[in-house]
Design a protein around this nucleic acid. Structure first.
Lengths: 220, 220
DNA sequence: CCGCCGTCGAATGTATGAAAGTTTCTATGC
DNA sequence: GCATAGAAACTTTCATACATTCGACGGCGG
């Protein structure tokens, strides 16, 4: 009855996780063709679970399936990423405002821990840790569905940033903003925390290729 | 060169569309078990494309797959629906504000056409037409990614409403609001249209079971 | 020399078969 | 009579075999 590591469930699921990791980490570049037979051989399985995995990844937006032609890693355009930042800008401040009154000491120390971790961790994990931090801050709002949606958004943004040559390193700025943000949360300063979060998200868009930048939606 | 009804390419894709339709229309009730063999026989195909379809529907949130146990139609809780209304409330007014300056006469007449259509159409199609209308209004904003996300949200809300006994019929109210909304868009009254849209979305939540109702996120 | 067409090859899509796990029903022991 | 162990039937899961489609290559004709 140990059951320490959760049973890996099905092969198809494992393939999904492995391929998703490779795509997000940039090991599979956007536009790269994904051949079922080759993937199957490399992983030592048959094509059936590979096909199922590709279907699932398509629904997640990481892969494009063209009938009778095969699968390729979905490209992300700068404009898509700009839209994803818009989504963040509309949803995350809302969640933070709901979360702050519900935050516990444990939430705040977990946030602090993640901020510290982000400094020492290598750049390859920064995006994931960044989402871990944001999720920690929004989690007390008790909005699991919205969080799942945002997780996918962050995933795609992370992938795009990894892809881009720009690789402007905003980590120093981000760290300062994160620290201030957590302080404001600890102090229960909802308004100021929300404002800072808006600026924090906008700052992250500042170095995207010049495209439609999100505006504040007229909510003054 | 007739090619009237395009063969939708692959069988798996057709199965996805058929099963999605059945789930959204409520023909398959939440929690219902979906057996591969039975579905395959009924549709006259083999299990392979059925399995792929179920995988995709799982990623869309309409189906739950439990390893070694099978698939069932995903339940929707009232709180999930409440979250989806929150998402609408945060994103749709933003899109509308962006869209209004870009609207053409064609957009507005299409909206009017859909409003008329909603009156005569039977209740089974109301939800889909409602989304068609809203999408028409947001489409000039040129935010395809956000629209895709909202489409899924509307899909799930529609499914929930169909499921519920409550079936409060807000269509009359909705129609009046829709008409006023289009008028404000035509007049270029961004602020007032956005306000009305917020109220319109909130009104739709008014008859959900008493749960955490969305608030305005503190953006006064 | 250019362009069209038919054949061949490779990868995808679908069906079927075999193995593993789950559920159910029965029969047995207490 | 009830609980439980065990076997049978069923379902899922993965692998393999078959069918189909797309693209490339080369020959043939203009």
């Amino acid at each position: 009855m140990s059951m320490l590591a959760i049973s890996k469930s099905t092969i198809a699921t494992q393939i999904v996780e492995e391929l998703r990791r490779r795509i997000i980490k940039g090991e599979y570049r956007a536009g790269m063709k994904l051949q079922q037979e080759q993937i199957a051989q490399e992983l030592g399985v048959s094509r059936s679970p590979v096909r199922e995995a590709l279907r699932q990844l398509e629904a997640e937006g990481l892969v494009i399936l063209i009938s009778q032609k095969g699968a390729e890693v979905a490209p992300i355009s700068a404009s898509e990423v700009a839209e994803m930042f818009e989504i963040r800008l509309q949803l995350e401040p809302h969640l933070l405002a709901l979360a702050i009154p519900q935050m516990t000491a444990a939430d705040l120390s977990e946030a602090a821990r993640l901020i510290a971790l982000m400094e020492t961790s290598d750049v390859g994990n920064w995006g994931m840790l960044n989402w871990d931090l944001h999720r920690t801050l929004y989690s007390p709002a008790e909005r699991p569905t919205i969080l799942r949606m945002l997780e996918r958004v962050h995933q795609n943004i992370d992938r795009y940033l990894r892809m881009e040559i720009t690789r402007y390193d905003g980590r120093a700025t981000a760290k300062a903003e994160h620290q201030t943000l957590v302080s404001l949360c600890r102090a229960g300063q909802v308004e100021r925390a929300v404002s800072l979060l808006r600026m924090h998200i906008l700052n992250a868009t500042a170095h995207l290729p010049e495209m439609a930048k999100p505006d504040n939606g007229g909510t003054s």
